[in-house]
Design a protein around this nucleic acid. Structure first.
Length: 229
DNA sequence: GACCAGGTAGCCC
DNA sequence: GGGCTACATGGT
């Protein structure tokens, strides 16, 4: 893990559209309008300057690879937007509204747990709970005199019992997170298995076996997306 | 201090 | 299968 920097041309990339559309919980806006976040074993700060996007932080691997993967850089969003905007007026307006969005390639495990936590909950609190879980069970990464925490792996989160989770403020969701983690720990269901399934209905069926995890269609789209790589 | 939140499981009918 | 309700907390 090392400090790295990357500068890319600003194409189909708008920070606020990406980070404030509700698809992620761990990116925070800074005073200078940049965003800092933790994903997998990376901490990045991202800012816009002179029609460029500057990525800076601690990366597990080459920053160009990490960014390319997480931000889905190999997909041409211009082509997609062009296609969608010709379907109907509603889509055209939607694209005008969020023209700079990219669908992040977030960690599948983190996403499953985050979605369980989101049940009957509000976004600020969801964010706080995820931060607390990460601080308690994730691994620390220090950058620019701040300590950030990765989202815990299955094994790391497996160390928490229901009371531990209750103490972190999960409320009634503690047992659903606990049971889901135990299922993954035991291997009743695996991430590899989810990734190997290409049919959305099959993935849905698998996930419905998990507690507190029946999927609304919006969630399913994300899970299918995250499971696809 | 009441009301609500990125929902869902467990009832009842 | 559809409709209702409880669920733990914290944010507003």
């Amino acid at each position: 893990m090392k400090k790295q920097k990357l500068v890319l041309d600003k194409i189909d990339f708008e920070l606020s559209h990406i980070f404030e559309c509700g698809q992620c919980f761990r990116w925070h806006k800074q005073e200078d309008n940049s965003y800092t976040g933790v994903f997998e074993n990376n901490v990045l700060n991202i800012k816009e300057k002179d029609n460029s996007i500057i990525f800076e932080g601690i990366c597990n691997g080459e920053i160009s690879q990490v960014v390319e993967s997480y931000f889905d850089m190999t997909t041409d969003y211009g082509v997609i937007k062009n296609k969608l905007s010709h379907i109907d007026n509603y889509l055209e307006k939607s694209i005008q509204f969020g023209y700079g969005i990219r669908i992040l390639r977030q960690d599948l495990w983190e996403t499953i747990i985050s979605f369980i936590i989101s049940a009957n909950n509000n976004i600020p609190r969801i964010q706080k709970i995820i931060e607390r879980i990460s601080k308690e069970y994730g691994a620390p990464i220090t950058w620019q005199n701040n300590t950030y925490y990765t989202f815990p792996t299955i094994q790391q989160l497996g160390k928490a019992n229901m009371q531990d989770l209750r103490n972190l403020g999960l409320g009634f969701r503690d047992k659903y997170v606990y049971e889901t983690t135990q299922k993954f720990l035991r291997g009743d269901i695996t991430l590899k298995e989810l990734r190997s399934i290409k049919d959305a209905k099959e993935i849905k069926k698998k996930l419905e076996g998990l507690p507190r995890n029946r999927l609304k269609s919006c969630r399913l789209h994300f899970i299918v997306w995250y499971a696809s790589f």
